[in-house]
């Protein structure tokens, strides 16, 4: 059965590649190649980074995947399925780890990946689901946040508290801020149905600008305390902190733009997950911004063009 699932994954991967289109596939492979070179150097200099990369990779996939319920229903030990899948997905990274570090780091990476596979993140669907402090930020029209915070609010809140509490340790709260961005990115995976899109009766440009402004404002309120406290308690890292903060907010906006650049009513795009992962990575690996910045500009134009089809009567 596991073999059949991996075969399905292969077919899904091929479909995602088709959805991405030839230009994006080329860019995708160029990025992967550059990333491999960059990581090889980074791992040689700092071996601990290899473990972190492996954890981030598998944690990202694990938190973004939508089939946990299905896998749990079909397989007796779903964590084994997840672990096997992550082994396959991170194979290039694991090969890099073997070459750049040693067996000890490989074992540590695998152990961490196994632990991540056992975590059942936001798998609850009931009316008493957690409502966090941030729910106040989610007004009626912000359905992405209402839904997202209901499912992952407690998790976000815990991360937020941890990030603030550990601000005195350099970089730690930045990593938490990145994980929070990752969770918030998952709020924008599903496309709303058409009747939700047209509610405010805005034209495409007004819709996008309004959405970006209101959501970035709310996100700013969530992430700013973490960053400011980190900046104050780690004065020597002020420049890095500001850069991280700026890119973090920027990445958040690109995720929204990407959603509407490819928007189709009530549809879920597998290709978007790949793109979002690269957007998220550019918050950690700044050189990736050479792709993300032009991508943001293109996405903004694409989003307006795409939404024009649905919102043309509201201009």
């Amino acid at each position: 059965m596991l073999k059949a699932l991996l075969h399905i994954r292969l077919l899904q991967f091929i479909r995602i590649m088709k959805e991405l289109g030839i230009i994006r596939i080329i860019v995708f492979f160029v990025i992967v190649l550059l990333l491999a070179v960059y990581l090889n150097n980074a791992f040689s200099q700092n071996k601990k980074l290899s473990i972190l990369a492996c954890y981030i990779c598998s944690a990202t996939i694990h938190s973004l995947r939508k089939d946990k319920k299905f896998v749990a229903a079909v397989f007796e030990h779903p964590y084994l399925v997840y672990f096997t899948e992550y082994l396959v997905y991170t194979l290039p990274l694991l090969v890099l780890i073997v070459f750049a570090t040693n067996l000890f780091y490989l074992i540590l990476s695998l152990a961490g990946m196994f632990l991540i596979s056992t975590v059942n993140m936001y798998h609850r669907k009931n009316s008493t689901a957690s409502i966090s402090l941030f729910s106040r930020l989610a007004k009626n029209e912000n359905f992405e946040w209402i839904a997202g915070l209901r499912s992952a609010g407690l998790f976000v809140f815990l991360l937020w508290i941890l990030a603030l509490s550990l601000s005195f340790i350099s970089y730690v709260s930045l990593v938490f801020a990145w994980i929070i961005l990752l969770i918030f990115a998952s709020f924008y995976e599903a496309n709303e149905p058409l009747n939700m899109l047209v509610i405010n009766e805005y034209g495409a440009k007004k819709f996008i600008n309004n959405k970006l402004f209101s959501h970035m404002k709310n996100y700013f309120k969530v992430i700013a305390p973490i960053i400011i406290l980190h900046g104050i308690l780690n004065c020597e890292l002020w420049l890095l902190t500001i850069c991280f903060f700026t890119v973090n907010i920027f990445c958040f906006s690109v995720i929204i733009l990407n959603k509407y650049a490819t928007y189709k009513p009530a549809k879920y795009s597998g290709a978007n997950i790949v793109i979002v992962m690269f957007i998220l990575l550019s918050n950690l690996i700044l050189p990736l911004l050479i792709f993300t910045v032009p991508f943001a500009i293109i996405s903004y134009k694409q989003a307006i063009n795409n939404l024009n089809f649905y919102l043309d009567d509201f201009d």
Binding site: F143, I146, R150, S151, A190, E192, P193, N195, D313, F314
Partner: peptide
């Protein structure tokens, strides 16, 4: 031109956001 502004379209698919 018939404008979407005048229309309420209730589609056949029941798609809703989760956790709403």
């Amino acid at each position: 031109k018939l404008s979407k502004q005048n229309i309420a379209y209730i589609e056949t698919e029941n798609f809703f956001y989760s956790y709403i």
